[in-house]
Structures are given as C-alpha cells and as structure tokens.
C-alpha cells in the first residue's frame, strides 16, 4: 500500500476580525487525491478558511500548511505554483479578454507546456475568449475562471462556490472535469452550496457551522447517512420506531403527522408499519444529503431516537 501525502493541513486555526471569530479552532487534513466537499451555510467560515489556505489572510491563532509548507501572506505564492483556484464571486481583470487572462495565468506556471490542457478545457467549457471580461455575464466569467483554475494542471484545486452562476449544462461539464481530475490524482477542495454536486463527486465532506467543523464524513459514512425519510399520518398519536433518526411530530387538523429518518434494514421498518393502526397516509422517500445537513443545521440529530 502506498502512503498518501498530506496536501493541506489546518491545526487549531482561529481567525478573528476584532472580537468576532469567523473561524474557531478548525483542524483537519486533506490527503493527496481526495475530493473534499467543504459545506456550510453563509457565514459558517468556509471562505475565511479558504482565504487562509491561499494566504490572502493569516490566522489569528493556529497553523496552516499546504504541501508541507507553512502558509503566510508573504510565502503563500510558493505553494501557488501547485494550486489552481476559482471562486464564484471571483473578480477577473476586466480590462483583459478571456484569452489574455488565461494566458496570463499560464505564463505564471510554465506557459506553453499547458497548451494541450488549454485546448481540452476550451473545448469543454466554450468560454468567450475574445471579449473583454468586463463585458461578460457572470456565467461566462465563471467559465473563464474555471478554465484558468484547471489549465495549469495543478496538484491541488481550491474551489469556492465554483458553480454559482453556471447553467445546468456547464455544471455537469464542471462535475465531469472534477471527476477527470480526481482520476488523475488531483486533490480537490471545494466549497459549495449545492449539496447534490458535493454528493455526486466528493469522497469526503467537511461540514462547517458557526466557524467550526461539525462533521467530517467519508463517502461511506455519507452513504450510511442516506436511507429513507418516512412520513406517517394517523388519527392517533404514533411513537417512532426504534432506530428512528431525528423524529418530529405535529398535529394538522386533528391528524397526527410523524416524520423520521431510517437507515437500517428495511424489514423491521415494514413490520413496525404493519403494526400501526388508523394510518391514513404514508410516504417513504430517499433521504438526501441536503436533508441530512438541514437536520444538522437545525440542531436536530438523533436525539430521542435511541439510535447509537
């Protein structure tokens, strides 16, 4: 078995803006070849963390390392030779054309040796290369930012909300690029609001809330968090079954509504359903990553379910 290299590492990182801690005691490491989804609500601390990874800002406390190198604003450029970066709200030089900007990016990392990759990406994303960036729509600017992030064939790609502004066709092109890069062994660290795309391509998800890491899940653990969502309506009050996750109940026009998540084997659930009386409606649907995170954000977890 080959030992994987740690590509980036944060150790007890805190970033304060005056008294407000945007990021608090965050620690995690990302290994080579991982595709990590960095997920959280607005203000959870995702962009602040990415800013420290790229040396735009320095941590108030703690240590950031990328490719084994300590990152500070003064030294970050050394690691940038191996990093591609794109953000949804990225401002590109508006006086330049798309082609001028991408060639400017390529020139900083070896220029013509990336010509083949440039051709592939231009074919996939079809960006408007000859127009000045300042005249382009947000989606078209985003295509240029993504081509620039991948064109230098970096070992690590850091993406902050990369698909905001992209149409569904381009979103799928982007996901295909991520899969392709992952297959080559590129490490991807990607923040996103679109949980579906995170679920589709990421091998690991780190969830941020209020400036801290609340969940760090592998793809397998994510799959385990899937399962079903059961919604039951009855004239009688119903108690949730054993192993129900985040159960909730309320009354709607004299009808008791019980909802819960379920990840175990389906047979005990069917037996439990069969034993219920006065059931007037039943709905069983797939539990999405989005729903899982909603529960985490609302502070509801497995409390009261008897789950382990």
């Amino acid at each position: 078995m080959t030992e994987k290299t740690t590509v980036l590492k944060l150790a007890q990182v805190t970033k304060k803006f005056r008294r407000f801690a945007a990021v608090s005691k965050v620690s995690f490491a990302v290994e080579q070849g991982e595709v990590v989804g960095f997920v959280g609500e607005n203000g959870a601390g995702k962009t602040t963390t990415i800013n420290m990874l790229l040396g735009f800002t320095s941590p108030t406390i703690g240590e950031v390392e990328v490719f084994g190198q300590h990152i500070s604003p003064a030294t970050a450029h050394v690691s940038h030779r191996r990093i591609g970066y794109a953000a949804g709200d990225m401002e590109l030089p508006k006086h330049m054309t798309g082609a001028q900007y991408i060639h400017f990016v390529m020139a900083q990392s070896g220029g013509k040796k990336h010509a083949k990759r440039y051709g592939e990406l231009v074919k996939a994303y079809r960006p408007q290369l000859e127009k000045r960036i300042g005249t382009l729509s947000r989606g078209n600017k985003q295509k240029i930012a993504l081509v620039a992030a991948f064109v230098t064939e970096p070992e690590l790609v850091v993406l902050d909300e990369p698909t905001s502004g992209l149409d569904p066709v381009m979103q799928s092109v982007f996901l295909a690029t991520v899969r392709e890069e992952a297959a080559r062994g590129t490490t991807i660290f990607m923040s996103s609001h679109y949980l579906q795309e995170v679920a589709e391509v990421c091998t690991r998800v780190i969830l941020m809330k209020d400036g801290g890491v609340v969940e760090d899940l592998s793809a397998e653990e994510l799959a385990e968090r899937g399962g079903k969502v059961v919604t039951l309506k009855s004239y009688k009050e119903i108690k949730p079954p054993e192993h129900a996750r985040w159960p909730s109940s309320h009354v709607e026009s004299d009808v008791h509504v019980l909802a819960f998540g379920y990840v175990r084997e389906i047979t005990p659930l069917l037996k439990w359903l069969a034993s219920q009386e006065d059931v007037i409606d039943l709905d069983i649907s797939e539990h999405t990553l989005e729903e899982e995170f909603k529960h985490i954000y609302s502070g509801q977890d497995d409390k009261g379910s008897g789950d382990e």
């Binding site: 970050a76 990225m90 900083q108």
Partner: peptide
C-alpha cells in the same frame, strides 16, 4: 474590486 485576490492566487509574490 476584488481583483487583487485573483492575482495573488497565482504564483506571484507580494
């Protein structure tokens, strides 16, 4: 304008 970060994300020292 936010362009400085875009440039500083490249291998260009401050």
């Amino acid at each position: 304008r936010g362009e400085l970060r875009t440039i500083l994300a490249l291998p260009i020292s401050r």
